[in-house]
Amino acid sequence: MSIQVENISKSYPKTLAVSDISFEVKEGELFGLIGPDGAGKTTLFRILTTVLLADEGKATVAGLDVIQDYKEIRKNIGYMPGKFSLYQDLTITENLNFFATIFGTTLEENYDLIKEIYIQIEPFKNRRAGALSGGMKQKLALCCALIHKPKILFLDEPTTGVDPVSRKEFWEMLKRLQKKGITILVSTPYMDEAALCDRIALIQKGQILKIDSPENIVSHYNKTIYKVRTKNKHQLILDLKKYPSHYSAFAFGEHVHYIDQNIHFDPTELEKYLKEQLHSEIDIAVAKTSIEDVFMDFTMLNQ
């Protein structure tokens, strides 16, 4: 096991950040923590990267205890905090050299590991980190986190505030790093990124709702989801929520995803109801279940 978390709890003076969380990350796995802002992801990262002490519970990283062996852990992990945490007034090269020196290595020594990422930002190597775009900042931060060839990589919301193209590139990079044998724990608020992980943990309000592979999570979901579309989306959600046998209804792109309590649900009856509510251009079809649907359902149950 690369990371082992047992019954970890942590609360701040006014809020409970993480409550009795347990999970395991296997070696070489790309594990995702999926959850909205404030779910406790960052707190969990800080506990695992040894910069925060948990109130209760035990955790090991690379077989080392996060409290007793924190010094040893710090040598073996790469950590990219959610907030951009490099020196804004140093250039790309200076930042890389600085972090290489801190970890007692050089840029050249592990160049092959960061090469693919580095060549993308190399044209700007003399630009100050503070003047880089969001995507480039994240690539630089990833380079810095990788410079000492860590066994385990902790990435806290690496794609937040990054444009869709860079996000895609970033995930491709993570996949390549995984092939090189690096275990990766990544967190993200974006559900679409969840599908790219080997396994994910859905986390909300400091609790884990479900841990499984994205495929299993979707395929084990036994409710049928209908995507409904009419001319007036806002009114549609309100009306769907008034439908007697409704289970849930929430906006999903240009559709509204609707789940009924009744297993023998008949879409034509819903259509009739919507017509009575003066909706036009009604379109109801079965939707493909996505992680987001599952997450929304779990969230609802949790509340």
């Binding site: 490099l86 970890f103 810095c144």
Partner: peptide, 13 residues
């Protein structure tokens, strides 16, 4: 404030 302390903490320094 900048968060660089967090990165320095998670280093062998």
């Amino acid at each position: 404030e900048l968060g660089t302390m967090e990165v320095l903490l998670v280093s062998p320094l």
